[in-house]
Design a binder for these strands. Structure first.
Lengths: 335, 335
DNA sequence: ACACGATAAGACAGCGCTGACATTTGTGGT
DNA sequence: ACCACAAATGTCAGCGCTGTCTTATCGTGT
C-alpha cells in the first residue's frame, strides 16, 4: 500500500529546483518560462505524479469553479437526458463541466438541491423549475450567477429561459387533423409540467376554435394523478359515448400509452404525439418533433452569453417544433 | 445593477459581532455554539445572503471535493443515462453530487477528460472504459481515489468493476430458441463495446455448441463500421441463401433495427433482443432485460464502500439478466 | 564599456475556510 | 472562598494556488 500523499506545486518546485511560482507558470500556461526550465518542471511533475488542484486554483481566482449545474426533476425521463446531453456538449466546448442534480420532481427539495450546488460555486445554474416560486434565486442572480430556466419559465424571477414552441406546435398538429375533417379530437396528457401542459392545451383549443369547435372539455383528458396511466386515459377517452375520431398526445408518456391502445383499434383512430421517440418512425406514428439536444445547447449558450455579458437584457427563447407526418396522423375520420 | 460582492464568513462575523470561527461552527454544524449566538449569526448571514464556499471548505479539508465523476462515452445512448440516473440517486443519499463528462467514445479523449476531472479532485471516478488501456489511472488509484469501471472491466488496472451478466444472459436467450427447435440463429450487433459484444457472442456460441451447432460464422453479423446500420445488418442476414429462422440482437441498437425489418416478415422470424426498451412490451418483443439503474447504483455503492475502506480487495460484480418472453422469441421455426 | 529594455525567475501575501490550541466564562462541589 | 471542569468563543496558521511586485540576467546599440 502506497501511502505517499498527493504532490503539490511546492513539491514539484523543490524537486525541480525552482520556485513554486515558476511551476505555477508552467501549468497555467503563462509565458516567460525558458524551455529548459519548463522541461525540468514537467519532468519533476511527472515523476511526482503531480496534478494541479483545481479547487485551490478556483478559490484563488475568486471563488468560482468551472462547473455549471443542471437541475432536473426526474432522471428517468429520456427527455431530460437529451437536454442534459445538449448542455454537456455545449459546455465542454468552453472547457466547463456539468454537474447534474435531481429534485425528484418535488418542489421542496428544489431549493435544498440548488443551495448545495450554489455552495459549490457553480458558474451558472440551469434548471427545470419545479417549485412555484424561484424568487429565492434572485440574490444569487444579482451576485452574477446566470440562472437559465429550461423547458418552463421561472416564476417570480427575472431569468433567461428556453422553452419549446408548445402552443404553436400543438396547434399545428390539431390543424392538420381538422384539415382532414376531424372535429372530435381528444387531448391526452399524463401528469406533466403544468406550464407545458397549459401551453399545449391552449394550442389545442385555439386550433379547434378556428374550425368552430368551442366546447372541448369532454375531449380533454388531463389527469394530474400519476396513478392514472396514459394508457388508461386513452382508453377512457375512447370508451365514452360518441368517442373522438382523433387524439393528440400532450407529452411523450401519452404517446407510449396511445400506441399501446390504438394499435389494433377498429375503426382506426388518428393520433399525433408531442415529442418524437425511438421507433416512432417504424410504427408510423406522426409527432410534433423538436430538437431536444438543441434545447440543452441553447440553454448552455444562453448561460455562456450571460457569463460574457452580464448586463444584457434577459432573453426568452423558443425552440421550434415541426410536425412529422408518418401515417397515424393522416388517418381521415370515418364517414 | 447590484455590484456588491459575495459575503464571506468574515463579513458575517463582523455583522454578528463574533469571530469568523464561530460562524464557521454554525455552518459546519459543529456544536458548542449557544442558541442566541447561533440565531444572531444566522440572522446576519441571511441579511448578507451568505452562502458558505464549498471550494474553500474542500480545500481546507484536505483538497477533496464532494463530487464523484462519471465518464460516459456517448450521452445519446439511453443506456448510459439510466446508469447515470442510478449513480446520481445513490450518491445523493450520501450527500455527494455527480459530475458527468463524455469522451465522445473516442479513446484519445478519455485520458484528457479524466485528467480534467481528477484536477477537480473528485472523490471517486466511475467510468465506462473506452480506451484500450487504463493504466494511466494507476497512480491516482494508489493515491486513494476509488476507480470503478462500469459495464466493462478496465484494462491494465486493478479496479472494482460492475458488469452485466452478458455471457449467461445471451446464452439463456439462445437456449430458449434452440429449445423451440431453432438451429439457424443469427447474431446481430451494431458497433458495440468490444467487451460486451465479445461476451455476448461467446454466450451465443456456447449455447449453440450445446446443441451441436459448431460453425456459427455465417450467422454472425458483427459490423464494427458505424456506417452500417443495425437495420442493414439484419436485412443482410435475412437476404442470404438459407437464412436464419431466428435472430438475437447484441445490443439495444440491434433491437431497434430488427424491429423495423422483422415487423411484417413472412414467414415470421423469431427475435430476442438484449436490453429492454420502451414499447418492447407493446410490440411483443422478447428481450434479455436487466436493471440498468441498478448497474449505476451498484457502481456508486462500490465507490462508497471503497471510500470507506480503501484496503479491501477489489471486487468484480455482475448484474443479473433475465429473459422476458413477450412473443417474438417464442415463434417456432417454420417446418 | 555602459545604459537600457526585455526576459526569466522569485518573494510574498491572501482567496475563504477550518483544525489545533488558547482563552474566557459559568457551574457545582467541598 | 476556592478549585476542577465543561461549555462557549477566540487566535492563528495554512490548505494549494496565483496576482502583484521585485530582483537577477542577458543581449543590444552606441
Amino acid at each position: 500500500m502506497n501511502t505517499q500523499s498527493r504532490a503539490t506545486l511546492a513539491d514539484v518546485a523543490r524537486l525541480a529546483g525552482v520556485s513554486s511560482k515558476t511551476v505555477s507558470r508552467v501549468f497555467a500556461g503563462a509565458g516567460n518560462v525558458s524551455p529548459e526550465t519548463r522541461e525540468r518542471v514537467l519532468g519533476a511533475a511527472k515523476r511526482l505524479r503531480f496534478r494541479p488542484n483545481n479547487l485551490a486554483r478556483s478559490l484563488r481566482r475568486g471563488g468560482v469553479s468551472n462547473t455549471v449545474a443542471f437541475v432536473i426533476g426526474d432522471l428517468r425521463n429520456p427527455f431530460y437526458f437529451h437536454v442534459a446531453a445538449g448542455i454537456e456538449r455545449e459546455l465542454a466546448e468552453s472547457g466547463l463541466t456539468m454537474v447534474l442534480a435531481t429534485t425528484d420532481d418535488t418542489p421542496e427539495s428544489e431549493e435544498i438541491v440548488v443551495d448545495a450546488l450554489l455552495a459549490q460555486r457553480v458558474r451558472a445554474l440551469l434548471l427545470i423549475p419545479v417549485a412555484d416560486d424561484q424568487s429565492y434565486l434572485d440574490g444569487e442572480r444579482q451576485l452574477g450567477t446566470p440562472v437559465i430556466s429550461v423547458d418552463r419559465p421561472a416564476r417570480n424571477l427575472l431569468a433567461d429561459s428556453v422553452v419549446l414552441q408548445n402552443r404553436q406546435g400543438m396547434a399545428d398538429a390539431v390543424r392538420s387533423l381538422t384539415a382532414l375533417g376531424h372535429r372530435k379530437i381528444g387531448f391526452v396528457s399524463n401528469p406533466s409540467a403544468m406550464y407545458t401542459l397549459r401551453e399545449r392545451l391552449a394550442g389545442y383549443r385555439e386550433a379547434l376554435r378556428e374550425v368552430g369547435v368551442m366546447d372541448t372539455a369532454r375531449w380533454e383528458r388531463v389527469d394530474d394523478d400519476p396513478a392514472v396511466s396514459a394508457e388508461q386515459a386513452v382508453r377512457a377517452l375512447l370508451d365514452q359515448a360518441d368517442p373522438p375520431t382523433a387524439i393528440v398526445g400532450g407529452n411523450n408518456r401519452a404517446s407510449a400509452g396511445a400506441v399501446r391502445v390504438l394499435r389494433d383499434r377498429e375503426p382506426a383512430v388518428a393520433f399525433i404525439g408531442f415529442d418524437d421517440f425511438e421507433l416512432a418512425d417504424a410504427l408510423g406514428i406522426s409527432v410534433v418533433a423538436y430538437d431536444t439536444m438543441e434545447l440543452g445547447r441553447t440553454a448552455a449558450r444562453l448561460a455562456l452569453e450571460r457569463l460574457a455579458d452580464p448586463s444584457e437584457f434577459t432573453k426568452q427563447l423558443e425552440i421550434p417544433t415541426r410536425l412529422i407526418h408518418r401515417g397515424s396522423g393522416e388517418i381521415p375520420p370515418p364517414r
